[in-house]
């Protein structure tokens, strides 16, 4: 009786050459290790994930104004919320969001050093065949509304004219899933 290492089952098969038996044992062992999930990982995966996403990304503070006074919102927060809002628009996927800013006024009237948001560039991938102009208008409106919610009255400076929507890519399938690129 010998062991069939390729399947892990016991068989009465004839004995293969020594070299290939070595390889078969290692291949079988590697396969078992590949299929193995360490119990400890199952136990700690959620905890590790929750710790990881609390890490703060380096990000510029942006000037914002609420009814109670000025405050700061980081650029990363703006990008994150914009992505989530635009994600609700069908047939497009956000590729990149660039927040354009200017330095605060020297008289200090716009907070303590936070940059002032002046525009947002949204790069999109769209599904092949989508009518682009209405889509771009929708994305521009959604982004503009979200900016106003996040930055308050400061958002008036982020004019619609400064909200660029750049159609960077076209996909054959659903761009939110990551279908093959059609053309750039």
């Amino acid at each position: 009786m010998t062991t069939d290492w390729s399947s892990g089952a016991n068989t009465a098969a004839s004995t293969p050459a020594p070299v290939s038996r070595d390889a078969a044992v290692l291949r079988s062992a590697a396969g078992r290790l590949r299929e193995h999930v360490d119990e400890r990982w199952v136990e700690v995966a959620d905890l590790v994930f929750s710790r990881v996403v609390t890490a703060t990304r380096p990000s510029r503070p942006l000037h914002a104004v609420a009814s109670g006074g000025p405050f700061h919102v980081t650029e990363q927060v703006v990008v994150s919320y914009l992505r989530a809002s635009i994600d609700q628009v069908a047939d497009c996927e956000v590729l990149r969001i660039i927040v354009q800013t200017r330095s605060p006024d020297p008289d200090g009237s716009q907070g303590s050093g936070a940059e002032v948001c002046t525009g947002v560039l949204v790069e999109l991938a769209v599904r092949y065949g989508t009518v682009l102009i209405p889509l771009a208008d929708t994305v521009r409106r959604v982004a503009s509304e979200r900016i106003a919610q996040l930055l308050g009255s400061v958002a008036s400076e982020v004019s619609v004219a400064a909200m660029h929507v750049h159609l960077a890519d076209v996909t054959v399938g659903d761009p939110k899933v990551g279908a093959d690129r059609h053309e750039r």
């Binding site: 990363q76 990008v79 992505r83 989530a84 969001i97 990551g178």
Partner: peptide, 13 residues
């Protein structure tokens, strides 16, 4: 795809 997930993660998803 991993590529799309990486991009979305980069955007805070």
């Amino acid at each position: 795809s991993d590529e799309v997930l990486a991009r979305r993660s980069g955007l805070g998803d």
